[in-house]
Amino acid sequence: MFTAARPGRTSGAVPDAPPVPEVGMDRLVERHGLPLVVLDIGRAARQYRALRSAFPSVDVHYDVSALSHPALVSAITADGGSFVVSHDGALEAITRARIDLARVLHATAVVHPHEVLAAYNAGVRRFIVDGTADVEKFVGYPDDLRLLLRLRSDDPARGAHALPRGIRPLDALRTVRFAASLGVRVSGFSLNVPPEATPQLYVARIARVVALMADIEAVVGCRFDSIDLGDAFPGTAAVSVADRAELAKAIRAILAPATSRLSVTASASRAVTADCITVIAGTIERDVDPLLASDCMDEGAGVAVIGDDGLEAGAAPGDTRPSLLPFFRSVAHTGHRILRTGRRPQTWSSAG
């Protein structure tokens, strides 16, 4: 049936179980046809739980911009998990799931004041902003607002392909004072760490921002209560058990004196969805990037969901005729795609 089986790419998460075997893929294709996107939601939920277990002092948020399938959002919600929205449209996926938006960290670049107001009125209370222009949009908001300033990355490789986001550490004091002059309280800072960050790099960045916060507190007389370790958490610790232990130990050591008053968050995406998405269209492509999978669904690929028990959703043990799940297709929205019910076109080819 399959013309080739391409080897999977290097996983972005600590292995917890082998992927669905090829014979299992064979059966899914027999039931649903080609092309097909297979989402191992059970594995993604386990990988999210493993991150939370490895970093108990960090409130690990899942970035729904990586994969916003309702089954995964529901699984993380059931575990008491939290979410981050980092692209336009991601908040819509969370809102449709009817979860408490107080568990959402809004990290999308803010453009219009009405977007801020809509998110706040929906229940979001925590926002990451990139500078003084964003701070001005929060003038007059109630005291339950939690505003974090994103610190600009000093990694040249990142800046070479995109405009830098956030403020320079040298401008942090001025920005906090500016916010205070408007009656807006800054709760803390968000790091900007590259996806390939090692525990050593994380430790250096965390120590630097903790020192920065202490200096500003001494000068301004304010009190910070939040620090966000950024997106792509936990860097290389996503694939190395040793790195996880080292990073977790370092986080506890650096932040221990402030744990009674400091909330520590972080955002994970590929560490959750790695090895969870397979595309079948004559060939088998494992560990597919979520955005590529969304492209496939845009072109009409069906979707099969594997649950926590390794079975396709809707199937009982030994059941060879599970019901076909509702089809989900994705819609482009400024660099983000949301899975939603829709029609099913006829063909798609991984070749192109």
Rank of each mutant, 00 (worst) to 15 (best):
D63T: 10
A78G: 11
A66E: 01
P35G: 06
V29D: 07
H61W: 02
H69Q: 08
A45L: 07
D59C: 07
A17W: 01
P21I: 09
V23G: 03
P70D: 02
T10H: 12
M25K: 11
A4N: 11
V64M: 00
T10C: 09
S57L: 14
L36D: 05
S65A: 13
V73D: 03
T3Q: 12
Y62T: 06
R49D: 11
V58W: 01
E30S: 15
V85T: 02
L72N: 04
V60F: 00
R27I: 11
V60K: 00
D79Y: 05
A71H: 03
H32K: 12
G81K: 02
P35Y: 04
A44L: 08
F55N: 02
H87E: 13
L91R: 05
M25R: 12
D88L: 14
V85N: 01
D59Y: 07
L67P: 06
P21R: 10
G24Y: 04
V14H: 04
A50N: 10
V37G: 03
D40I: 06
I41V: 15
S11D: 09
P15M: 06
P19R: 11
A13K: 04
A50L: 15
P15N: 07
S68G: 07
R27Y: 11
R46K: 12
M25T: 13
R6Y: 15
A66T: 00
E22Q: 10
L34H: 09
H69F: 01
A4I: 12
A4R: 14
V20W: 08
E22M: 11
P70L: 10
P15K: 05
R9I: 02
L51H: 08
A5P: 00
R31H: 15
D26P: 00
D63A: 14
P56M: 06
L39C: 10
R27V: 08
V84Q: 07
R52W: 03
L28I: 02
I76D: 03
A17N: 12
S65I: 00
V29C: 09
L34F: 13
S11P: 05
A54L: 07
V73I: 15
A13L: 04
F55Q: 01
A78P: 07
H69D: 11
A44N: 04
V58P: 01
S11K: 06
V38P: 02
S11M: 12
H87T: 12
E92V: 15
D26W: 10
I76A: 03
G42Y: 05
Y48R: 08
T77N: 15
F83A: 04
P18G: 05
T3V: 12
A44K: 00
P7F: 10
G80Y: 07
R49T: 03
V58Y: 03
L36W: 04
A17H: 13
D40F: 06
E22W: 07
D63H: 08
V23I: 11
V14Q: 03
R52K: 09
M25V: 15
E30P: 05
G42H: 05
S68M: 04
R49L: 14
L34Y: 01
H32A: 13
P15Q: 09
P7Y: 00
R46I: 10
A45G: 03
G24A: 13
Q47L: 07
D63M: 08
D26N: 10
